[in-house]
Design a protein around this nucleic acid. Structure first.
Lengths: 197, 197, 197, 197
DNA sequence: GATGAATGAGTGTTCATTCAT
DNA sequence: CATGAATGAACACTCATTCAT
């Protein structure tokens, strides 16, 4: 049993979280371009100056938010990761994890996408992000070695097995299409057909 | 007395084109956020006020530029479109056209992508854009009817046959990978494997 | 006879002058530290943005204002400069010119002094300013050569013949003392006693 | 139990001194304008809030610092003051004391000068400062009575006997000139020639 | 048609100061 | 006594847009 004492969470943590949420929410609502520090502050219910206590500057705010989101996404994708299963099953699990997380936190994906297409994207170390997905890389490599997966660069494989998750989760890109379990299922079949040997 | 010869490009057309090019160039260089009207004007060698002669406001400038680019891309993709060929060959032709055009006009794709991830994206009528690709839709429909292509919504198919072109053309997304003819070839094979029946 | 047509002065010149006057006035009233761009703009009756049409940034505004003032002061000091007179008479004329100009434009001197003690002072080329006073340097050199003036570095001489003018014009430094013609006279005698051979 | 020994410097005194030094240092480094309370606090190794324990507000901090410096300077100038010597010798001693102290504590002079040219200068009682130099006034008065020194207001005398020390110590005002003992010597001769009867 | 000048509203950021702990 | 957190107001500067010419 977990007991939360009064003030167990300090004032700061609450505030930092409020800023995080506000940043994500605002970018979702009005886009990266219009996401000004003042607006984020108002959304978070704090003074603009307060943001500069927790973050060095706007870039730091956005980059840190992006990294935190990528961390969350990485953990969610790898939930119940089991190395010993067949490659296809592992990828299916990742795929399902992805869509499950999206259904709960689509705003994280939207933020990540907006961020990736902004000039700030260059300020994050890609290697740092990719490390989160290293177990997946290992599986893919094994699949290639066992001639289960096509022998093409990883970047190309990801276009068919990772990006579709992002694209399907993006309302702007597929308009009125409702993402049912059936569609998720058949899309995975397509992704697997694309990459399998 | 001023005489305009047939097909002569008037001063105005030249200016509008200069604004178009400047808009694309600036968004490519400094991103959507930093692409201010004043900077576009300077780049185009005109006064900021002049831009408001040709476009109602900044939104109009960007949306119009996007539409014009989409038009150019649509035409390029459908070059030498031949309805009578097998479905696979038609799609392969589109695929190759796409990469050829990208190699010449990557700045158009970059602009389009930035635009898609901006709040302005909601201001364009998707149907209008999609009309450009109608012949392709027809082919796909035929493919589905003939059980050559999987019977899934068009939006899902496009994730595997259209988006990969965009993704592969985006330097930011695939890092150091150099897009060779061989990669284009094998990526198409994967796309086709994904969508074929 | 000079005729001023209506609109002979363009709108801009009036505005630039208003900004110049406002800059001087504000620094006089509230000191260099408190002289913000917004306040200067309000004083000049223009928008803050307008200042950035005429000046690149705040530094440019202040440095340009300083240079313009130094120019005015230089011209005023050298009024009716006559090379052929005895050294003492030339310096006396400069001295009197200085106090005459101060009695009309003490705000220029106050601005110049404030500027000299600000970090912006380093941004002006001293040589450029000193060129305005070159004729005086020549006279001093002659005085030294003829053993009329003490043979010490020019910087030391100026402490006794130039700085006293500035100091006496500074109300803050001499408190309640009223600068009469008699004081100006006897102060020059002291200055001359200091530098003469 | 905490025991304070006689003459032991308590934590508080050390902290106040740290703030004093930090204030002087920062104004020397970045000028009066950029010397923010937060920066002074960081330089002193204390919290901004701590400064408000020792000083009512920023004005109080700066004014107090100025007064303390003026006190130090006053004491230094009057070191080994001997009423019984001839007027000229007394002033020479003051002059030499001044330059000696400048060579050790130029940062105090720089601060004092910056302060004098700030709006805060009006907030100090000049009489309070002048009292420190009262013994000098007496000597001057005696000199005037004995017809050794010119009979002009004290404010005018100080322009030739006190301000030159400040001006010569100001690197910004005399550029590349290096202040040697010889220059100090001849400058005093000039100052004396200026004021002597 | 084309422009440079002009601007109110906004940008990101720092300020002096207060307050709960 | 000492502090880090917090803030409204100000900072220098840029924005999209309008307007007189």
């Amino acid at each position: 049993m977990i007991v939360y004492f009064k003030n167990m969470r300090t004032r700061d943590e609450l505030k930092q979280e409020a800023i995080f949420e506000a940043t994500v929410k605002l970018v979702n609502q009005t886009g990266f371009v219009a996401g000004s520090v003042a607006k984020i502050a108002r959304e978070a219910g704090v003074s603009p100056a307060t943001i500069y206590i927790y973050y060095k500057n706007k870039e730091d705010l956005l980059v840190s938010t992006y990294k935190a989101i990528k961390q969350k996404i990485g953990v969610a994708f790898l939930k119940d990761f089991d190395d010993s299963l067949p490659v296809r099953d592992i990828l299916k699990k990742l795929w399902d994890n992805g869509f499950e997380y999206i259904s709960i936190h689509s705003e994280y994906f939207h933020f990540a996408e907006q961020f990736s297409n902004s000039p700030y994207a260059e300020m994050v170390d890609r290697a740092e992000i990719e490390k989160l997905f290293e177990p997946v890389f290992k599986v893919i490599e094994r699949g290639i070695a066992q001639k289960i997966i096509k022998d093409v660069p990883f970047e190309v494989l990801s276009i068919f097995i990772y990006f579709p998750i992002m694209t399907l989760s993006n309302k702007r890109l597929h308009g009125d299409l409702i993402i049912t379990d059936e569609i998720i299922e058949s899309a995975f079949k397509m992704a697997w057909d694309a990459i399998r040997y």
